[in-house]
Amino acid sequence: MPAFLLTVIRRDLLLAARRRGDWLTAQFFFIMVVSLFPLGIGPEPELLKRIAPGVVWVAATLASLLSLPRLFADDHRDGSLEQMLLSPEPAVLLALGKAAAHWLIYGIPLLIVAPVLGIQFALPGEAIGVLVLSLALGTPILSLLGAVGAALTLGLRGGGVLLTLLILPLYVPALIFGAGAVDGMLAGTGAEANLSLLGAFFVMSLLVAPWVSAAALRVSME
């Protein structure tokens, strides 16, 4: 069973490596959205420092939603998704592997870019550390819950916008805890409480979301 999981992840990583343009789009979207805020609001460092956690987190959720409609769509179109579901391997592992691959492709680069954006927004060093930590805990939640939405909207008209409508409300706790951790660091109250809650939400998503995604895939393939 773990071998199947690894195969799914390795396959998606290989496909992503062959088509770099696809996933780099979401990364540059993330950078651009964050960079637009100072242009719209003004360059005062105090103000930028205040809004940075929220802006980075909102942009991260939007970037994940931008890349999610593709998660199952290509495999659905060429029929390989159906074959994978017909195989004796559990569909839960397929859903988990897909979400894990999505996080590796979209989440890890985001973690690497985030400190640079933190410097742009005049965040102090320890706040940047907490921002990266909160994204490291939080972006897997976005991939796991997003996979549910991607499976539900598979092959539908206007699936991308619909996916946003379905999944953004479910992202709210991750956004609150993630941005809250950085805010707590900036305000001097510490980030531990919010990071712990974010971790708890991650564990819960990990337990629930793959099962729901697998069920949703089966519904969509009927």
């Binding site: 819950l145 549910v148 539900l152 479910l170 629930v208 979301a209 729901v212 949703a216």
Partner: peptide, 12 residues
């Protein structure tokens, strides 16, 4: 599909 979304929403 709607039922699955309603359920995951109810957990959330």
């Amino acid at each position: 599909a709607g039922a699955l979304l309603a359920l995951i929403g109810a957990i959330n």
